[in-house]
Design a protein around this nucleic acid. Sequence first.
DNA 1: CTAAATCATGTATTTAATTACATGTATAAA
DNA 2: TTTATACATGTAATTAAATACATGATTTAG
Lengths: 178, 178
Amino acid sequence: MALRNVLQFIILGLLDQQPLTGYELTKAFDSDIGEFWSANHSQIYPQLRRLEQSGQITHQEEVSGEKLARKRYTVTTDGRAALNDWLSAETEPTVGGRDEFAVKMYFIKSPDDPRLAHMLAAQLGFHEQKLAHLKIQMTRKFPNGQNNNDYGHYLVLDHAIRRETAYCEWLRSANSKK
Amino acid sequence: MALRNVLQFIILGLLDQQPLTGYELTKAFDSDIGEFWSANHSQIYPQLRRLEQSGQITHQEEVSGEKLARKRYTVTTDGRAALNDWLSAETEPTVGGRDEFAVKMYFIKSPDDPRLAHMLAAQLGFHEQKLAHLKIQMTRKFPNGQNNNDYGHYLVLDHAIRRETAYCEWLRSANSKK
DNA sequence: CTAAATCATGTATTTAATTACATGTATAAA
DNA sequence: TTTATACATGTAATTAAATACATGATTTAG
């Protein structure tokens, strides 16, 4: 199977919600969706060009201030069809999702390793902070559990919270087993 | 920050446990460690060459049968030092760990989307199977919770089980919210 | 005996992704 | 007013990773 190029579909999906500029698309990967996919602007701008060349998106120029131009992209009918094909296709689960810390743990042979406690504590700090941030996002964006017109957004936030919760629990349990 | 090239350290870590061939290293990524890092043989063989050129590993030839030669690699003092440096260094958590299914979910706007139930069910099947497999591994490798001389191996298995458990719970909860 | 599966090692090509390079505008704060 | 930050868009160079190409030996099952 050829490499998937998932990025193109994510761009289509985001543009299907509302027309966006390259800059706004780049920012989208810093929040929400960034928990499960990341992309740099140096990937996004060339991909936009390719999507436009293949007729899946179009853009209109906008000018803010004197002369700062930006391109606001919109999905075409073709693009929307490609997006729906992708959404409807079977998704084989990501294997070997990379986690450098977990790999390091694999090489800690004994629960008495003098490095272990500090490693676990440092990593727990990171993930507790992330979890706290995600929970704030959740209450801010979905107060009273309201999620009718934005179910997907709620789902991925919930997913990220569960993931970080499990991660923290693992780190705490690893520390107490000593 | 330059790209990390974590693979080199994983190879050093595996060889530090016991001398291995390229083929055996490749197989190591199909089990255990494969839950948190993956690599093809086409990455591993060139990396072994580079590690040997920089004096971090050495090899001796072995022959099985008539003429099938294989190279069994061993870590040098330099290599062991590099491994320990890596283990002791701070690990920034992996951000944007990729999950194509989660991204798809982000684009499902309504809990009443007709595709949702099937998507969740299919994905749950995958992850339940994986979880079952991991649990079998755990009881096979660590009966009675014995994990004294191989704590790291136990930790990553536990980690993978917790991750898959949380994933399944998320999928079930996403389905019942409809 | 023979065919399939596994062992064993490499290279080449392509695609994906990161980092660095490059340039300029607009706005908000000091 | 000037300076820092954010807005805005691109390309170039490098590194990582996946897939495909390539070859051959050994073992195991039928």
